[in-house]
Nucleic acid binder design. Sequence first.
DNA 1: TCTCAATTTTATAAAATCCATAAAAAGAAC
DNA 2: GTTCTTTTTATGGATTTTATAAAATTGAGA
Lengths: 227, 227
Amino acid sequence: MTKILIAEDDDHTRDALREVLTMEGYEVIPAGDGLQAVDFFRVENPDFVCLDVMMPGLNGYEVCKQIRKQDEKVPILFLTAKAEEIDTVLGLELGADDYMTKPFGVKEIIARIRAILRRTASRGAGKTDDDFTMDDLRIVPTELRAYRDKQEIQLSPRDVKVLRLLFDRRGKVIDRNTLADEVWGVDYFPESRALDQHISQLRKRIEKDPSQPRIIRTVHGAGYRFE
Amino acid sequence: MTKILIAEDDDHTRDALREVLTMEGYEVIPAGDGLQAVDFFRVENPDFVCLDVMMPGLNGYEVCKQIRKQDEKVPILFLTAKAEEIDTVLGLELGADDYMTKPFGVKEIIARIRAILRRTASRGAGKTDDDFTMDDLRIVPTELRAYRDKQEIQLSPRDVKVLRLLFDRRGKVIDRNTLADEVWGVDYFPESRALDQHISQLRKRIEKDPSQPRIIRTVHGAGYRFE
DNA sequence: TCTCAATTTTATAAAATCCATAAAAAGAAC
DNA sequence: GTTCTTTTTATGGATTTTATAAAATTGAGA
């Protein structure tokens, strides 16, 4: 679930935001002041941050700076009471993604958050999207395709992940646990043969001779390797 | 040069703004009432709009609505005499980028315009209305039409946006988030199927064989592509 | 107001991908 | 070679993603 950190000293506003955003299906981490916000950020590692500018102790600008030290990418939405504060936000170049001036409507803030998350979701998705070549196969992640000669081969996002991983550590053996972890994530059951199955399918598509694989080689008892 | 449309019925204010902004290196299009503003917007296609709320004929809210029909992204700054009008601006969800309450200082408004332009620089990028050709289809954005042979195909503004985006990044996959963001903007709910539906309808009109699309191809798990 | 067209929602179908199962094949150990 | 373990792959069903038809909604213009 998408975690949103709300840093807002006014109890009423904070509660209202929490309620509304929870209703929308977000997990909300409420913080009542700047120091708390910084702490909670570290602990909870949220996907989105709403920052009130005026807060006791550490103000929004400072909190933003602290957060940016830990995470350059997390989207930050500033809430400002005065329109002039916007200029400070912009002027300090804190890396804010958007701002809203109070008072704001409930629908407005939800729409903004959604829009920002949508924008940044695609940014963070594929870390490196550069093309790479394995054997005589050219993989183009942004196109979800590979080319051999002029022949096109359709790839799924998961295919690309697998190939990327093998390419990044070419020469080294990627053990099955690592592969499962990096490509499937937390919800992979080790006793499942989904991984094998996927490798098998992938080989069918990308290997000239799937029974003599040159790109995804198996290292018995260890995992897979490409070189 | 950056074009700014000023819609303001008070001659004195309008002239002052024109002078100041011209000094700053902007090209100013002055409009004395709402109807003029809408007309000028269509003709001049400015990069920025300052809208007075209270104007004879068409008021600022209405002008904003009209403009947003043509262009969802152009930054709009509202000028209001009464602070309460701000709530209306926000309440109507007109897509205003900022507002200022009169009286405002010269430096203040310049700073504000500059800030908004900086913030929205990415949004407005590349809004060419030039014709372009996809496969055997010639798209003429200014006419909201496309031609195949001598056959005319009616297009909606949204159709054109979708096609333009695919054309601008031909060969690459446009993921659904990006598409939603660029075409629908802030009020697209990801769980909606409006996007699919729109693509489907559009294909019916522009593809020779909608079940074998050549212009809008789908890339499963990613988005759409044209090449 | 009514009408028309564009758009969105809803519901269902279709397609692509993914995975569990089980049997076959391959490799390792003896 | 025999046995045990690991990997591959065929098959069919489950899940996810996308497509489309039909109904509902919206919004502009008459």
